[in-house]
Structures are given as C-alpha cells and as structure tokens.
Design a protein around this nucleic acid. Structure first.
Lengths: 201, 201
DNA sequence: ATATGGTGTATGTTTTGTCCTATATTTGGT
DNA sequence: ACCAAATATAGGACAAAACATACACCATAT
C-alpha cells in the first residue's frame, strides 16, 4: 500500500508521467527510503486511475510516444491526507545480514570478520551516497529551505543516523571477534554484560 | 531466499517440526531480524524437502496429530555454508515512516510532532523488548556464552543500536519542529547546515 | 549504415509474504 | 460438563515486489 501513497505524494507536488516518477522521483528523491520497479509504477498508476485517485491526460508529442501525465484527484488528495495524518504500526524488521550473522556459528573467525568488514564497507558506501544527496539537496534548496526541503532533509538525516549506528556496531563486532580470536574460544570475558543499567532512557 | 536459509540455519542446530520453527524459532529467537508466517514456514519446508535440502521423518504420536520432524541434509548444509560465507549486497531500504515524513508538507506542526512522537514511542517499545530479550538471553547463556550465544547477542546489539539511533534522530526532529513552530515558517536558521565536515569518518 | 543510449509505456511470470480457513486432539481451568 | 488454549499440519486467495521482455521512436556518435 505504501507505493500508492508515495505516488500520490509525488503527484501532490506536480503532475507527472510514469517515466517522470521513475527517473525524477523513485530513482532520486526517494531512493533512500523507497524504491519501485518501473513495472510496478505503471501498474500502480493504472490501479490508482481505476480507483479514481488520479486522473490522466495524454500529451501528444511530435515524433516521440505519447506521454500520459497523471494528476492527483480530490479523492486521492483526501486519501493521502488521511494516511499522512495517521500513525502506522512498525513493520516487522527484516534484515538478511543479521540472519547471516546469527547463523554464522561454524564460520571461521577470519571469514566472519571478512563478512562483517564487507558489510561495513557497503554501509560506508551508502553513507557516502547519503551525504552526497544531502549536500546536493542543501545546495539546491538554498539558505531558506521550504518546509518540504526540511522534511526531505530529515529523511536523509534519519537514514544517515541509522547507517552510522550500524557502522559503529559492526566495528564493535569486529573488535570483539578480534579479541575473541586472540584469546581462543570460550574465554567468557569477551561477553560484554548487558548495558541496560548504564544506558537506560 | 532468506527464509530458506533461516530454516536451514535453525535445523543445523537441531531437528525441528514446522510448529517448532514457528513457536521456538521465528516467534522468539529471530523475531527481531526475521519473521515468518506459519503458512510460509510449512510451504518452505515442503519446498526444501522437494529440493532435498531437508529430510523428514514422521513421528507417530499417541492421540495427537503426527509430528513431521525435519533434519538438514548434506546438500542443505552445503548450500547454507556457502550462503553464510558469501557477502550479499545491501537490500533496498524501505521505510514507510520516512515516506510519511517526506510527504507531510501540508500537515500542521502539531500533527507532525504527534506523528513523530508516536513513532518515537513505538521505537521505544521495540527497544524495551529488545532489552528484555537481551537480558533473558544473557541469563540463559550464563557467564561463558558459546559462539552461537555471542553471535545471537550481536544481532540484538545491532538492532538496539539502530533503534537508539532512530529514537535520537526523532528527538532531534521534534526539537527542530518545535523551534520551527515557535519562530514561524521559513526562518531558515532552523536548517542545520550539513554535518559532513565535523562528522567525517 | 549501424549501434548505442535515452524517452516512453506496457505485459507476463515468478517469488515472497499475508490473511483466512479447515482439521483434529489434548490439557487445563471454571 | 464445557470452554478455551495449546499442539500440529495444510490449502486457497491475494497483494507486493522482482525480473524479464517487448514495442516504438529519437538523437548522436562511429
């Protein structure tokens, strides 16, 4: 259902074709929190049109194939506004990397550290990309950003915060495994006691 | 594909029935990084069996319906080992809450802060749950945790780290919006310049 | 001439995950 | 005696997403 609202959200700002949504919206503006396949976009537009949440007008273009430009309808606006104003439950967390780590019991320490380091690097890359988007966005929006700009910036900040947290965590894991390997197995001391007390909030 | 490996991972440790996997594995041990519907578990077990990654023996039980106990096969072990030793690309990030925030332009400051605070509370609940799991796990595994225990603990730590980062970020957002509302719109000063310089790693 | 790459829309198939329902028995509580 | 909850497996329907492929046209470079 979220994709529907993403499309309505983009259309609220300006009228767009499926192609626009793909290239100017999902591949750029929202890529850090939602992506969508081209096929998915067109099918969803079709469905939104059938449910009267968007209207379409076809733009004849000289030579090129026609552009179908979609606009959000009254009903679409209302549905979107309602969704935006409602808190939604957290979706189940799904993380294939944590799964890999959880079952890596029989992996050698070296392989395991390799996996962790690779993941760290991947997250570092993502963080760099996010930083790039943030700078670009700051440049575009200038010294007096609109409310829209501020919200967009917040989403980037959120992603960067998560990213940094995961990187730090991975560094801790690598360190722990390093001393684990150095001292041999089952030394116990490596197991940091829970931080509940010192870190309560 | 990840679900296959999750099941193989659990079976590597001990033989289990579909019901065991549901109640003792996915609803408890792995709930923080992967969940699975009961129907999905049974269907996946069926498929894994057809592809010879698991074997099954049926336990007659007096009265009760038969238990189908699954065990991982040689082929299953090899497939799992290979998957565990390979780094996998980051999946696309999908976060409906960030989407909600990104499109919340027309929401009043009050509603927006409400949404952010609710999200904060939801994450706080998740963090409490994670803390509970961590304590319980620490208690069960005792002073000399096995490698398996340490890895499991790491997955919990990773989730908690992400959770905390998101909560802190939400607090920042709420604060920013608070001063935004106080000073009126488009004051510009509220837009924190990018932190790239001070936070480089 | 031909290839490449961008613009633009659309369908088919498969995988993955969710929800609902059905069946059958035992145990424990009121 | 009766009801709810736990134990145990499985199919149908469907939405969401990924993956592949197709059609049609243009501009530009080789």
């Amino acid at each position: 259902m979220s994709l529907d609202h993403a499309i309505l959200g983009f259309l609220r700002h300006e009228d767009l074709s499926g192609y626009d949504l793909k290239t100017r919206c999902f591949e750029t503006r929202s890529s850090h929190f939602w992506t969508a396949d081209q096929a998915q976009i067109y099918r969803t537009l079709d469905r939104l049109q059938r449910s009267k949440y968007v209207t379409v007008r076809t733009r004849r273009q000289s030579g090129r194939p026609d552009r179908k430009v979609f606009a959000i309808s009254r009903a679409g606006n209302e549905a979107l506004a309602e969704w935006l104003a409602t808190p939604h439950p957290l979706p189940a967390h799904r993380d294939p990397f944590l799964m890999q780590l959880a079952f890596a019991e029989e992996l050698s320490d070296e392989s395991l550290v390799g996996i962790l380091a690779t993941q760290r690097d991947l997250l570092q890359d993502r963080l760099s990309t996010l930083r790039g988007s943030a700078s670009a966005h700051a440049r575009e929006s200038g010294p007096r950003p609109s409310r829209r700009d501020i919200l967009h910036r917040m989403t980037l900040d959120g992603c960067m915060a998560e990213c940094r947290a995961s990187i730090d965590w991975l560094d801790d894991c690598i360190e722990t495994l390093g001393s684990f390997a150095a001292q041999g197995e089952s030394q116990g001391a490596l197991f940091r006691p829970e931080t509940t007390g010192g870190d309560a909030r």
